[in-house]
Write a protein that binds this DNA or RNA. Structure first.
Lengths: 134, 134
DNA sequence: TTTCATACTTGTAATTATTACAAATAGATG
DNA sequence: CATCTATTTGTAATAATTACAAGTATGAAA
C-alpha cells in the first residue's frame, strides 16, 4: 500500500498538516466516524483545527475517492477509509456500523432496466452480535 | 388492496383530513417525494397545513409501516408508499429515484457474520436511461 | 532570502432539515 | 351540547452543513 503522502501526490492534493491528521485518524479506525467524532478526537492534539476544515477535507477526500461516505438511515453521514466496494451493517440498538467484506452483491451489473449503474450501496440493518444476545 | 381508511383502522390511526391527504398524495406518485415536495404540493389545496404535520404524519406512517423512508446519498430523506422490499436507483444527474422491483438481493439472509439482519436497503447510483443517452 | 501569488485554514454567519413545545382546533363520546 | 382527548399549527430550538471573508502557510521565482 502506498503511503498517504504518495496517494495525496497522485491525486494532486497538497499534504497539509490538517489533511494528514484527518486521514491518519480515519485510517486508524473501522468504526466509520462522523464529522463530530473526528473533530472531537482531533481537537485535543490540534486545538486550532476547525470543523469547517474537517468538512472541507472530507469532501475533498470523497471527491478524490480516498474516502467513502455512508449515509445510513438516521445516522447522518459517516466516513470510511476503505474505498473498495463492500457492504455495511447498522445495529439499530447500539448504533455501530460494521464492515461486511464478504457480501457478494447481485446488483453489480453494469446496467439495470436501462439505467447505467456506477455505484452500489448495500446497507443491512438489525441487531449486532452483542446486542442480539440479550 | 384495502382502502386507506381500513388500513388506518387496522393500525389504530385516526383518519384525519391531513393524514388522508398526505397518504393519498404519496400513493399517487412514484417519484419518492421529500417533505418539502409534499408540503409544496398540498399547501395549495389545503392552505393551513403545516410542515410539522407532514413530519409528524410521515413519522407515524413509517412507524406503522404504511410508508418507507429512503435516505439516499445527498438527497435527504425521501418517502415511498410501497413498503414491500425493493431497491432504488438514484440518477446522479437529474436526481430522480426509480423503483427497481426485480433486483433480487443476495443479502436477504437472516443472519450475516453473527449479526441479525432485519432489513436490507440497496441503493444503486448512476445515470438513468434518459440522462445516459447524452 | 525576500517577495509574491496561490492554496489552505479558520471563525462567523447563513442556510437547511428536523424536532420540541404550547396553544388552538377538531373529533369522538357520553 | 359539554367534555375529553387526539391532532394540528406556528414558533422557537437544535443540528448539520455550507458560504464567505479574513488570516495564515506554502511554494516558486527572483
Amino acid at each position: 500500500m502506498k503511503s498517504l503522502q504518495e496517494r495525496f501526490e497522485d491525486k494532486g492534493i497538497r499534504p497539509s498538516q490538517q489533511r494528514l491528521r484527518i486521514m491518519k485518524y480515519l485510517e486508524g479506525r473501522h468504526d466509520h466516524p462522523s464529522v463530530d467524532m473526528i473533530y472531537d478526537a482531533l481537537v485535543r492534539e490540534m486545538p486550532t483545527i476547525s470543523k469547517t476544515t474537517i468538512y472541507n477535507t472530507l469532501r475533498l477526500m470523497v471527491e478524490k475517492a480516498l474516502v467513502a461516505d455512508l449515509t445510513i438511515s438516521g445516522q447522518g453521514v459517516r466516513y470510511d477509509p476503505v474505498t473498495e466496494p463492500h457492504s455495511h451493517f447498522l445495529c439499530r440498538k447500539c448504533g455501530q456500523v460494521i464492515d461486511l467484506e464478504d457480501i457478494e452483491c447481485p446488483c453489480l451489473k453494469k446496467e439495470v432496466q436501462g439505467n447505467k449503474v456506477e455505484e452500489v450501496r448495500v446497507y443491512l440493518i438489525g441487531l449486532c452480535k452483542k446486542c442480539h444476545r440479550r
